[in-house]
Design a protein around this nucleic acid. Structure first.
Lengths: 254, 254
DNA sequence: CGGGCTCTTGATACGCCTCAATGCCCGTGG
DNA sequence: CCACGGGCATTGAGGCGTATCAAGAGCCCG
């Protein structure tokens, strides 16, 4: 198997996705309500299931390669993936983290303009390009839904441009943390008043997401901690002690 | 009229668009072939014309306000506009320059997530939200076209994130110049071998587009000029003396 | 309990920003 | 037609924020 160096890590190249079974059960999918699949009415679910294939991607493995021909679309049902673009010398920009309910593949013409790797073990539904096209013809609501999704992505992309082009490291981290809350990254055992949220990604991922280095991410988080705005129980968890203040910083008023 | 300070300039707020006439002639529109309107067949053009209103926006004036309720969609037929987002303290990120054929308004939910101002005198077609919705119901091809446009915008947005997050000033300028070529910003009187392209935007606009300052933009252009990669006949024109080298720099190999 | 990893922290360097002055272009008015 | 003035662009000097280089701390897992 060929290996592609990503920072200090080597990520196995495709094909690495593991087909689980060809009969996908959409009726029992707990992500259907929040995903594009909600556009298909209950009585027609068998059409959807026929077009989809459930797959499992091991942690750390790629399932979309930047530049590969875009033959498939994906819908994540479990786990988180990082989406990214690379420069020839290895510089990486993570364009987003895709969690359950996320539809992937819109940002593609003939080839994918981004890569995708599983941050955690990822389960997803795969649709062939032709299969999805057929579905869209039969269910116009699906196409409307995809347009909504694309518009929503576009709004987030512009927000991200503002962050990368004009915000300071401190503002970027605050924006990232506040954004995680609205994305529903709450920690399962978060019981207290203060919002506890999970960071399934490494500092390196956060850095490449925010256009910074791991050192700056670490330093900035430490500073926010010293100021009492956040707490860091461990490297993969953050407690927001003062969400209002963080929000102010994120929007450029801090 | 209320004024909003943008840098050293004051931009008149809406309403500033000037309705030209209610009867829009789509059949004679020279932008139809390249715009979303191409999705409407010739024999149904009267439906399109009925839904559209032609408008003229004076140079420097705003026609979309960030945060305004998104009641309209626009299709630019002449001139160039800048699209941008602002931070409370005035920091600005220009997300894109919209030229003839560009469809505007996709990146909107209930309110616009960006502002738009005419860089040059701009002529555009305005569609009401309901009017466009009706058109999409009658002409599914229009919705497909909008989805294509959205996907294309998404690809460009991700490219821009890579630029803002990971490229140097030199690489950003090279990317900008090369990008202008493919956007067809060739100078009308560009007759020589070397590509001459027009820069209708100010250095300030370029800086806010690339996440830099005007000084860095100016310095970097001067350096590229000193190296013989470009020529600067005047402030609003650039000649690409070595497009190949610029392309290499833009993609991170320079 | 050790090895290897990520994360953190420190010292220094560099690229871009900020502040400031000069130059250029172009429209205006004498 | 040319002198003047204002705005934008260019160029220079210095400072700041983040990157880079380097070392140590914490954590996970065998």
């Amino acid at each position: 198997m060929s290996l592609a160096p990503i920072g200090t890590l080597t990520i196995p190249r495709m094909p690495v996705v593991i087909p689980l079974r060809t009969t996908t059960v959409c009726a029992r999918c707990d992500q259907r309500a929040v995903s594009v699949c909600a556009a298909i009415p209950d009585e027609d679910l068998h059409h959807l299931a026929a077009a989809a294939t459930t797959m499992l991607v091991p942690m750390g493995h790629a399932f979309i390669g930047e530049g590969d021909s875009a033959n498939s679309f994906y819908n994540i049902t479990h786990g988180t993936a990082r989406l990214f673009k690379l420069l020839p010398d290895g510089r990486r920009q993570i364009t987003g983290f895709a969690g359950p309910g996320t539809f992937l593949g819109l940002a593609a013409h003939d080839t994918y303009s981004f890569g995708a790797e599983a941050l955690e073990p990822v389960r997803l539904c795969r649709f062939s390009r032709s299969g999805l096209t057929d579905l869209m013809e039969d269910f116009p609501a699906l196409e409307q839904r995809l347009l909504q999704v694309a518009c929503s992505e576009l709004v987030m992309a512009q927000e991200k441009m503002l962050l990368l082009g004009r915000k300071t490291a401190r503002e970027r981290l605050a924006t990232f943390l506040i954004g995680r809350v609205s994305q529903g990254a709450h920690c399962p055992h978060g019981q207290t008043q203060t919002t506890t949220l999970a960071l399934p990604m490494s500092r390196s991922d956060i850095a490449d997401y925010l256009g910074l280095t791991i050192e700056t991410v670490s330093r900035t988080l430490s500073k926010l901690k010293a100021e009492g705005l956040i707490a860091l129980p461990n490297a993969s968890e953050v407690q927001l002690r003062d969400p209002a203040a963080l929000h102010a910083i994120a929007s450029g008023e801090g």
